[in-house]
Design a protein around this nucleic acid. Sequence first.
DNA 1: CCTCGATGTTGAAACGTTTTAACGCCTGAG
DNA 2: CTCAGGCGTTAAAACGTTTCAACATCGAGG
Lengths: 337, 337
Amino acid sequence: MKPSVGIRDVAQHAGVSNATVSNVLNRPDVVAPATRQRVLAAIEQLGFVRNESARQLRAGSSRVIAYVVLDAANPFFTDVARGVEDAARDAGLALFLCNSASDGGREREYLELLHEQRVEGILITPVDAESAQIAERGTPVVLVDREATDGTRCSVAVDDVLGGELAVTHLIENGHTRIAMVGGPLSIQQVRDRREGAVRALTNAGLPAESLTFLETRSLQVAEGRGAGERLVGLPASRRPTAAFCANDLLALGLLQSMTQQGLRVPDDLAVVGYDDIEFAAAAAVPLTSVRQPREQLGRTAAQLLLSENEPDHEHRHVKFQPELVVRASTAVKRRK
Amino acid sequence: MKPSVGIRDVAQHAGVSNATVSNVLNRPDVVAPATRQRVLAAIEQLGFVRNESARQLRAGSSRVIAYVVLDAANPFFTDVARGVEDAARDAGLALFLCNSASDGGREREYLELLHEQRVEGILITPVDAESAQIAERGTPVVLVDREATDGTRCSVAVDDVLGGELAVTHLIENGHTRIAMVGGPLSIQQVRDRREGAVRALTNAGLPAESLTFLETRSLQVAEGRGAGERLVGLPASRRPTAAFCANDLLALGLLQSMTQQGLRVPDDLAVVGYDDIEFAAAAAVPLTSVRQPREQLGRTAAQLLLSENEPDHEHRHVKFQPELVVRASTAVKRRK
DNA sequence: CCTCGATGTTGAAACGTTTTAACGCCTGAG
DNA sequence: CTCAGGCGTTAAAACGTTTCAACATCGAGG
């Protein structure tokens, strides 16, 4: 069933030593063309596949990096992953994606496995602050979309406070004064930062911090956005916000849907701003104003930082990108009729 | 920097032989409790991490399966992956996700790497029919969302002809007779099958096959759906379809957006049916009628089939699931005003 | 007191590569 | 004719585990 043809079978078949076969595989230029041909033919004929475990055991390096992602179903992360993969390919590395699905247990298991596999490096968007304290075990680790609090590793993040400020400032400029923020849970650093930015925008405009109605959700999924929409509409008209800032686009899409179902118009009855600018934001029936993060660049930079880890004079760095507001129909200024 | 503490360092530190350490790791019950404690303490103290390469080299098995996915950014595939991972976890295996991004070259590279890594098995949604002919190299391979034409491997698929038939029959029952199908490229088997189903539905209803306007797209992305929408609206009113069947939900979402932008109402001016029933389909501003595939079950079954591959009396099987129509607002019957 | 089986532990041989230093051969210079 | 140097090839030693047969140790049964 599995004859498991090895390098020495190939060697024997080609009438050379196994060292020569190894050379053909790793330094083709060093072996005479004639011999090389003979060896390649033997490889083809026997269906030989190099055993990466043995190779790695001896050679040390694995040619693989991994990205442990928080939620593989969130388009934001798949876009980041695309950036990671591009950078990895440029460096001749393959990328394995692991999905922790916001589960600390899974995350730990994958980290353990990846360490054991001796991957070249690990990128991770950790489930929570605790799990970010992953013990250093010899494999370089870079935090993605989180800021490393201590100086023990590199991190790549986006300025979420600024993002929140951009979003809410935009709403204020459009004449809104009663604004809601939808997001949660507050255990997520991002949500806290974005809210802080929102409050700062209000303060800058001379508005009281209380004019921000905070609707906390249990997760950042579409369904939660729908729920928030219902809560919003249930508020007494005098206190009901005229605009909502959502902590991510999935929530915003849910909110949007909820509005439409309840017979309210976006942006006329409620302006909506999302966060992440995922592809579906632009594709929504009412295209969503959103705070764009440089997703692919985030991934690409994280990968590059990871690769620089084993340079001799490596210093851990914390890169922070600036977000950018993308204005679309969901916050168009109310038409005077 | 990397002292690389091995099993024998642990052994020495605990005053036992390396065989005992190995036993603690793999058969804890066989070693005396006292010794076990001592060894575990040494492991902890030295920060030992088992070298999986060496383990695998000797032991043969890798405790990992991989899923080579066609497009990691398509929610359909991430849902399938979720099913795969659940099944893998139940079997004590980890899942590595690899993204071929519809690129035959990447796909080949990943397959090569995975073979070399000696993963326990590979699940793959191949880029095209050719690449489905992956040479058997000792690692079990199962096709996902594709039907294996030859009997050399297992496959898990969904009846796409039936799916197309369900979709278009529904439209016909709602009174539509001029129907468009949006999808492509036709090199994708799924698209061909779904079209075949659409035609069959028309035939069953006694309508001519020509009443199906086929709008071919270059990919199954949102942007292509928007483009198709513009082409559709550009048709002379007499020939313009009153309903559209899209080969997947991404196209349908694009089409939907295009309609709204052009001031047409869904479903009043154009009824729309999608395919896959991804989460965003229900969350769209006009909730999308769609053909649901048992995504997670697809993944789960594929994984189970893969695991059964190394049973002694294994026979390659081809599982085919039935799709199901989910009716939502995008095909609500036109209200008589 | 001897034997036996059970229980725990160990030494050494794999596993399939990569790598290093050495080897033989050939060519051209002296 | 000798010798230095280049080139292609090779034997053998790693790499860090797992596994297996063998080995102590001990208590019980004869």
